[in-house]
Structures are given as C-alpha cells and as structure tokens.
C-alpha cells in the first residue's frame, strides 16, 4: 500500500481540496490506484475535489473516466479535471481566442468583418459596415456602422470607440439602435450590458475600469 500511494497526493488549499495524480506511471495503474483509494474512503461527507493530472496529457474520455471512478465509488464530487498539458491545436485555439486581432483599415459599407476573440480596429467603421467579434471590439476611429461584440452569447463583452456614433450596437443577444433623429455622436465612450436591467448602456471610457475590472486581463492574460 505504501508503495502505491505515492501515485496520489491530496492537498488542501484555499481553493478546496486538490487531488494530484502522478504523471510518470502508466495510466491503467493510476486508475486502479485511484479506484482503490476512493473506495476505501468511508467518509460520507460530500466534499468537492479538483483533480490535477499534472504533466500528463488527458483526453476528454480520460477526464470523464477519472470523474466517473471518483464519483461512482465515493461521496466525493469532482469539480474539474485539470492538466498542465494541451495539444498544439488546443493551444493555438486558446491563443487565438485571447489575442487581440488588429486591423489597420477603414471598414466600409457592405463589408462584414468577423473576428474570433477581440477586435482592434485602427480606422473607421463606416455606415453600412458590420464588425462581428466573439470578444470585445475596440475602434480607434469613428464608429458609425454596426458592431456585434460577444457574439453569440457573451454579455460581458464591451464595445469601445474613440468616436461613438453607431447605427446599431449588439452585445450577446441584445440590440440597441441609434435614435431616429440625427445625433452628433460622442467621443471616447464604451457600450456594455448593465447586469441590473440587462440593457445596453453607454459610459465614458474612464468608467470602463470600474464596470469591467477584468478587462485589463486582455493585455496581460496569456503572457
């Protein structure tokens, strides 16, 4: 017993219990050990654990497997199964989704710009043009066309523009349009969904930090 227990290490952290699985042994013996260990756990408390596979690559199937072994044989609940290893494809997708895509050009009437992640447009978005991003949209020019941030369902996305005069702003599933009378537009504003009434609202850029404090991660995340 003492020999095999080295494959499992449990640690209590501020974020709950983490179960570290050895990453050098073969997977079969690991699962065996895991099953044995959790079955002998006789406590009836439903505790939530996070499983950390360390530097072992695990597939979706393996993840489900680990989850099932723990939950079927004990009262423990699995919060998530994590690993330090990503496939190249996953890593690229992840990088893609967190990189701000930059476009140095005018987006013109009839053009549709579709972006995975955040879009930074150094130029104008003209009337009749559409920018559609899964993340946030930043326009360092005049925004006069249609923008859709957080497509299709991220209500935390924001639209920031140096000159805000869009014909429509869409965030996630909400649409807000310009009034029927002519407006001048305003400088340095951003649009967001207010959680309280779930409506798109405008704010001055210096308030963005207060309303979306996590937005700063864009420049820091991943690096």
């Amino acid at each position: 017993m003492s020999e095999t227990t080295t494959l499992l290490t449990m640690k209590g952290t501020s974020e709950g219990i983490i179960l570290f699985l050895d990453d050098r042994c073969d997977f079969e013996s690991l699962l065996l050990e895991l099953k044995e260990k959790v079955t002998t756990d006789v406590s009836t408390n439903t505790t939530t654990v996070t499983v950390n596979c360390q530097n072992r690559f695990i597939t979706k199937e393996d993840q489900e497997n680990i989850k099932a072994i723990i939950q079927d044989n004990s009262h423990l609940k699995v919060k998530s199964v994590e690993s330090n290893v990503l496939t190249k494809k996953e890593a690229n997708e992840w990088l893609d989704s967190i990189t701000v895509k930059t476009f140095v050009k005018t987006i013109r009437s009839g053009q549709v710009l579709k972006v995975d992640g955040d879009a930074l447009i150094v130029g104008d978005v003209n009337p009749g043009a559409t920018v559609n991003a899964t993340g946030n949209i930043f326009v360092l020019g005049k925004l006069k066309g249609i923008v859709h941030a957080g497509f299709p369902e991220n209500p935390d996305a924001v639209v920031v523009a140096a000159h805000m005069n869009p014909s429509q702003i869409r965030i996630a599933d909400k649409i807000s349009r310009a009034p029927d009378y002519e407006v001048e537009g305003s400088e340095r504003e951003f649009a967001f969904i207010n959680e309280e009434n779930y409506q798109i609202e405008l704010g001055e850029v210096h308030n963005l930090q207060k309303i979306r404090p996590n937005l700063v991660e864009i420049t820091e995340r991943g690096f």
């Binding site: 013109r108 009437s109 009839g110 053009q111 003209n126 009337p127 009749g128 043009a129």
Partner: peptide, 16 residues
C-alpha cells in the same frame, strides 16, 4: 447625399 456617399464607400471597398 448620404445615399450616394454610402454607395461610394461600398464601391471603394470593392475597388480596394
């Protein structure tokens, strides 16, 4: 006029 500027914008986009 707005309509013709809108179309000019479209055509400039195509010409690019």
């Amino acid at each position: 006029e707005k309509s013709s500027v809108r179309d000019a914008d479209r055509i400039i986009g195509l010409l690019e």
